[in-house]
Simulated scan of single mutants.
Amino acid sequence: MNDALLKTLATRRSVKPDRLEAPAPSGEELDRILTIAARVPDHKKLVPWRFMVFEGDARAAAGEIFVEACKAEENEPSHVRLETERTRFMRAPLVVAVVSRVSKRPGAPEWEQILSAGAAAFNLCLAANAMGYGTSWLTEWVAYSATVRAKLGLAENERMVGFIYIGTPKEKPEERERPNLADIVTRWQP
């Protein structure tokens, strides 16, 4: 039995992006996290996901794309709103986008490919958490924006699974209420 792994799984908690600070994983640590993220069920070995890393100045450059998209897609966004978009990825020292890419393949339904991408996103969170980093998996409006998708180079068969914000937690996140097993588990009987 791997008690350390079970403890990580039992106590993991998302950390709000603005509660994350440097350092974030880089170099070999980040490569290890992404390698672990890629170890998920992948029927037919299609690799129906990919990772896009935003670190350093790339985070600010992404913010300019978000400002452009906000101006194009909203009616007269306020200065405060535009500044929020400009600094969206600056809330954490590292952001990794997980992109789902569905291939038409007999025997590999679209739904299974999307679930595989979701599993990759969560594996990424778990790997970073196991190394002592905090994570927050968010989509927010930018994940669904046609302008953002185009500017980030997503293909027609690709969708944003989410953005994983990663860094060192400024403080331990508070625990939140979890579902009661009696409310979510049934035992099927013939």
Rank of each mutant, 00 (worst) to 15 (best):
M1S: 11
D3V: 13
K7I: 06
L9A: 15
R12I: 00
R12F: 01
R12T: 00
S14P: 03
V15H: 01
V15L: 05
V15K: 04
K16R: 11
K16H: 03
K16W: 10
P17Y: 06
D18H: 14
L20W: 10
L20V: 08
E21C: 13
P25S: 01
S26K: 10
E28P: 00
E29P: 01
L30M: 08
D31N: 14
I33L: 08
L34H: 07
A37G: 06
A37S: 07
A37I: 06
A38E: 12
V40M: 14
P41Y: 12
K45H: 11
V47H: 13
P48M: 12
W49E: 03
R50M: 13
M52D: 04
V53G: 02
V53N: 08
V53R: 08
E55G: 09
D57R: 15
A60P: 06
A62Q: 08
F66M: 14
F66E: 14
V67I: 15
V67A: 12
C70E: 10
K71H: 07
P77D: 05
P77M: 04
S78W: 02
S78I: 05
V80E: 15
L82T: 01
E83D: 15
R88G: 06
F89M: 06
R91S: 09
R91M: 07
P93T: 08
V95H: 00
V95E: 05
V95A: 01
V95L: 02
V96F: 02
V96D: 05
A97L: 06
A97H: 02
V98F: 00
V99I: 12
V99Q: 11
S100P: 05
S100H: 10
R101D: 07
V102S: 04
S103E: 14
K104C: 08
P106I: 11
G107P: 06
P109R: 06
E110R: 07
W111A: 04
Q113G: 08
L115G: 06
S116A: 13
G118R: 01
G118C: 08
G118T: 09
A121D: 02
L124W: 05
L124S: 10
L124T: 10
L126T: 14
A127I: 04
A128Y: 04
N129I: 15
A130E: 11
G132S: 15
G132W: 12
G134A: 02
G134M: 02
T135G: 01
W137F: 07
T139S: 05
T139H: 05
T139K: 06
E140F: 13
W141C: 03
V142R: 04
A143C: 09
Y144K: 01
Y144E: 09
S145I: 03
A146P: 09
A146D: 06
L152D: 00
G153Y: 12
E156V: 13
E158M: 09
R159W: 04
M160L: 15
G162H: 03
F163Y: 06
F163A: 00
I164V: 11
I164P: 01
Y165R: 00
G167R: 05
T168P: 00
K170M: 01
E171I: 03
K172V: 12
E174Q: 00
E175A: 07
E177C: 04
E177M: 06
R178P: 02
N180T: 02
N180C: 07
L181K: 05
D183T: 01
D183L: 01
D183F: 01
V185L: 14
V185A: 11
V185Q: 08
T186W: 09
P190S: 15
P190G: 14
